[in-house]
Design a protein around this nucleic acid. Structure first.
Lengths: 227, 227
DNA sequence: CCAAAAGTGTTGTTGTTACACCCATGC
DNA sequence: GCATGGGTGTAACAACAACACTTTTGG
């Protein structure tokens, strides 16, 4: 018998705001199966479409967003993960700044929403698995590459970075040691600008220098930011 | 138009012998395309078969081997990676002790052979890519998990482990520091047996204690073996 | 003037690296 | 007795963790 397996992609899109911590983008399905359930954005790959392109298209179609950083996560292929046919899903994860986008449900989605990773609803298919896997990967990645910068504004006070790491790694961070370590890598630029939010002393702004980062990386540098 | 993408799996099986270093299992294709070319073992996934099962089946069918350690590597899905149809491949990598098996070409394979990773021939499809990716992953993995033990005999002299790491990480290792570090983890057992190979003082044998290793791992231990 | 958040150095401890000589065997 | 590979400890240095008070603002 000839093969009849469908190929789909799913995306775990992480966002971060200092107020709400880390959140994940979910859509409410418009169609069966799992009609009206929350799910990760995703869908079938077209015949001549690269996998990454399929992810970007689906994110555009279903949620109205474009992502910058994206990486393949894992492929999920258990024969019974979709109740209709055999569908394997190649999962990706991505990081965005939620404020950069206006969410808008389209085509296959009834609704789109950011959910805090600590409060995700029941998800369709094996999407809970995929999400858990992505969170684990994100933590690991964060620990040795400074990808967290994708989740912050272009210019940000140091405390935002600190809070990001704390909420992702679920542990206290010593402010002084953290700053020492990050600054030692040299890919973070101190600006002459300040921001003030509510009470407290105004905070100096910083920005990530990608060029410097890629230089360091190319020359075989090992980032080792915790564990 | 309905989706018509095929799903295959490919395996990068690594072997290691102290004499030949790290090698990879290749098969010579019996059929078009790339007839008579060397390639990674693999093939189409059956409709009701889990991905891992497909890999194991293909390895059995094409080379006559069973693997113990196996992990998913990455999914390769460029639209033009197969000249016939769109085929995405979910690649796995595995580690074995070559001496445990008698290779035997079967069904789709004209021949099966171990090739030193430093001397691989031209490979079919994008298999060179896949192999390079696997080598990179193997190095990374080896650096923070003691998976290398899959590549050694049950009981082995310490120098075998040392040579394994040297040939994989391509760097000199200080014998004393290496031993100190490894022994400190506590998952390696010193035996009261000795082996002698050629000239030189007989070497004490060691064995890997998986139970202890999994205990440590479960209790959230971080292995940090170099870089 | 009190609460809130930002900013800033030093010290003790721990881990990492570098390094060289003796031992047991085969030939 | 010489060549081959196995076995072992210490000291200098670098990295990491712990730690608390001052500054600037809003209310």
């Amino acid at each position: 018998m000839t093969q009849s397996i469908k190929v789909s992609v799913d995306a775990v899109v992480f966002g971060y705001t200092p107020e709400d911590g880390v959140s994940v983008l979910l859509i409410k399905r418009k169609n069966e199966p799992f009609k009206h359930s929350w799910a990760l954005p995703g869908g079938l790959v077209r015949n001549d479409e690269a996998l990454e392109d399929a992810v970007r298209r689906e994110l555009k179609e279903e949620a109205g967003i474009d992502v910058q950083f994206m990486e393949q996560l894992y492929s999920f292929g258990m024969p019974d993960r979709d109740p209709r046919n055999r569908v394997i899903s190649i999962a990706y994860y991505a990081l965005v700044r939620p404020r950069d986008f206006q969410l808008s449900a389209q085509t296959d989605a009834e609704d789109v929403e950011w959910y805090s990773v600590t409060e995700v609803p029941k998800l369709a298919f094996d999407h809970k698995n995929i999400l858990d896997y992505a969170i684990k990967r994100l933590r690991g990645k964060l620990a040795y590459e400074p990808i967290g910068f994708e989740l912050l504004d272009k210019k940000f006070p140091f405390s935002d970075l600190e809070r990001l790491y704390q909420s992702l790694l679920l542990q206290q961070i010593d402010r002084r040691n953290f700053k020492k370590k990050i600054m030692a890598y040299g890919f973070l630029e101190e600006l002459a600008e300040y921001i003030q939010r509510g009470a407290g002393r105004p905070a100096r702004l910083y920005q990530f220098n990608k060029k410097k980062y890629f230089e360091l990386k190319k020359n075989g540098y090992n980032f080792d930011l915790f564990l």
